[in-house]
Amino acid sequence: MTEQLTAIFGSAIVGSEVQCGDQEVLFVEPAQSREILEWLKDNEEHSYDLLLDVTAVDYGSVPGVQVVYQLWSIIHKKLLRIKCSLPENRLKIRTVVDLWSCANWLEREVFDLFGVDFVGHPDLRRILMPKNYSEGHPLRKTFPLRGKFSREKQTKIALEQDYEDYYRPEQLGALGIEPVNDAD
């Protein structure tokens, strides 16, 4: 498979290895990651049709983030891991939401926790952390376990959250609907 891919995508295939005896890993360039994933999904010889996971790893020793895709082919019963290293100054990769709809939330989570920008994602915003969270992206190695602010400040910011966020007039305006009257 690596040869096939190298023949088509050339230098975008950085390398491959086998982990734990039977887990195939493929390293690809971020610039062409989407095309490669699309090929793997649509090529009938492989048809990796189930995207199991999109996640990222911050090794700490190497600056930057590695985005990891786990693929599974239901027909051929094969597992494949795609890794894509992003340099610290360019945490950008193209989205795969249009290929697999489940990538939507998974990519949002990676954005939330690692700060990776998925170019072309329809709705890239925080998913797990509160909207007003301002301490950064927690799963980066530079982020301390207990957060950057003191507990006092964290509690204060937390209680300042507007839990009726969605009902703010500007929010409703963004949805294309105008509030008629505030029930409160």
């Binding site: 003191s150 507990r151 006092e152 509690t155 937390a158 209680l159 507007d162």
Partner: peptide, 17 residues
């Protein structure tokens, strides 16, 4: 940061809406 056993009991410092 404070820790789990010694809390900063601060909620009154924060104004809720």
């Amino acid at each position: 940061f404070g820790n789990s056993t010694q809390q900063e009991k601060v909620s009154s410092l924060a104004q809720t809406a």
